[in-house]
């Protein structure tokens, strides 16, 4: 049972990790990073590491996303999409 939960979470996590690289909008990519953090939290709980899970929940899904989103705001990439050539900041 636990194995199947882990399998679903791992698939979800790897899919959002790929989405981080493929999504054109930077805001969506940052949100996908936070999804990866949440998946990691579940996996840490399954690995019997509640302390690490707590840290990852506070940092990976919360603080890190906020820092990255704030950086987007300050870089002016908030609404602009990456057009695949990497010069979406013009």
């Amino acid at each position: 049972m636990t194995t199947w939960v882990a399998l679903v979470v791992v698939v979800l996590m790897l899919a959002s990790a790929l989405a981080v690289l493929l999504l054109r909008s930077f805001v969506a990519a940052v949100a996908a990073t936070a999804v990866v953090g949440l998946g990691l939290t579940v996996l840490f709980v399954l690995m019997r590491a509640p302390d690490v899970a707590m840290t990852e929940a506070a940092v990976g899904a919360g603080l890190s996303g906020v820092i990255l989103a704030l950086a987007l705001r300050r870089l002016g990439l908030w609404r602009i999409e990456d057009n695949g050539r990497g010069d979406g900041d013009a």
């Binding site: 509640p50 302390d51 899970a53 707590m54 840290t55 506070a58 940092v59 919360g62 603080l63």
Partner: peptide
Amino acid sequence: PGGGFQGGV
């Protein structure tokens, strides 16, 4: 579970 690092965050 918890401690200085988690609470600090």
